[in-house]
Write a protein that binds this DNA or RNA. Structure first.
Lengths: 214, 214
DNA sequence: TATACTATGTGATTGTGAGAACAAGCACAT
DNA sequence: ATGTGCTTGTTCTCACAATCACATAGTATA
């Protein structure tokens, strides 16, 4: 049954995360000129079971043909349309230093996520462009967020300056913060914070290896 | 009950991940000179329930005093000791380009994760040091992995070159791969792959906002 | 020393996601 | 037209994680 038309169905977070894998996978199939795929093809590529793929897709609709599989172009298109109907993925980056710049440049190779503005307190950074993305003074923060109805912000500034900026982001309407600084930050109910750091991920993998295996 | 001394207890993955948050949180408490914390203090900082904190900690031992809370120094020290007893978190980075270099430099500010070697197929990169980390030719891959008993590798090379390198990593004994390239990769049973990309994370947060809220 | 109070540690319960198995449906051959 | 084979969509079961609630054990105070 197609639940797509209902408002806000309860889709598991794990499903949403895997959906990104599937999309990625489907795009490479499309690029390679593959016409049809089975749930098991996708599953193997993404390292999950085929029943998981089918169940995940079933949250969004019926896309396949029994006995035959999924039409790559069609599935790709339908999922894309569905996601585009949610509006553009607009985001801002706080901090136009090394890390911020790297993220902005990296984003230009990715057509999904739009970084529409960067912010820096440093005078010699503001007013310029980084790969087409304007760098504003932090004074403009609230204005830009409200004008563009931004809900997600990426924070790439030194740890000690994080909390005041977070407070401003929250009161300006930001609902989800991706922090590249490792220290814990305080936000009110309803705002989500995730941390993002390669070395933390390595630490986690390390713990996992040590506490799960044999 | 302290399960630390038993071999490979079944600790939930979610607990392991949160443990990193707690540690991070405890270090800032320590730095701020806070002597004692309650499970609820940690919980609020990390965005979880206090009972979750207590249960998570209980997998590793009894660290608190009823009616009083946790001694910050003591808890910090005990958890650190426990993790150090697992041995050093040694890892290697494949690819000494922009991304690889950034990670290596970043790792120098983090005392937990040791990057002990980098690899690159490019002749003008090999033989040099990046912030103290030697850059080897890819020929040395298997030797270094085996000599140092490396289990985790971070891949920061162009997508098209990923799969052959993965195959070599796996047969050299790598158990966990963190890929910074977005394309799916194939590994045998028992080897885990995670993907890591800021913009994918933004995409995920976006989906989460749209499919979870109100 | 006794009593009230406070916060931990844990057993029990609820909830949620993964995996397996099966029913349903389409294509194609005969 | 009908049957066969194949893969999807879905139900059901199991396992695991989050949450609750309470017993436990310490502190503080009079």
């Amino acid at each position: 049954m197609n639940r797509m038309n209902f408002i806000k169905p309860a889709i598991p977070e794990t499903t949403l995360r895997r959906l990104l894998y599937y999309m990625r996978c489907l795009r490479t199939y499309k690029k390679d000129g593959v016409k049809t795929v089975l749930s098991d093809n996708i599953a193997k590529k993404c390292g999950v079971k085929s029943s998981v793929v089918r169940k995940d897709l079933s949250y969004f609709g019926e896309f396949g043909v029994r006995g035959k599989g999924y039409d790559v172009d069609e599935l790709c298109h339908k999922l894309d349309t569905m996601l585009n109907s949610l509006g553009p993925i607009n985001t801002i980056v706080i901090g136009a230093g090394k890390l911020g710049t790297a993220i902005i440049n990296h984003s230009k190779e990715n057509f999904k996520t739009n970084i529409i503005a960067a912010f820096d307190k440093n005078r010699d950074k503001t007013g310029k462009n980084i790969n087409g993305v304007p760098v504003y003074s932090l004074d403009k923060l609230e204005d830009i967020i409200k004008e563009n109805n931004i809900k997600i912000a990426v924070i790439a500034i030194p740890p000690c300056e994080v909390q005041p900026v977070v407070d401003r982001l929250v009161s300006a309407g930001i609902k989800s913060i991706l922090s590249l600084a490792l220290l814990p930050i305080n936000v009110p109910e309803g705002v989500e914070v995730s941390f993002f750091d390669v070395l933390s991920e390595v630490e986690y993998l390390f713990l996992k290896l040590n506490f799960k295996e044999s």
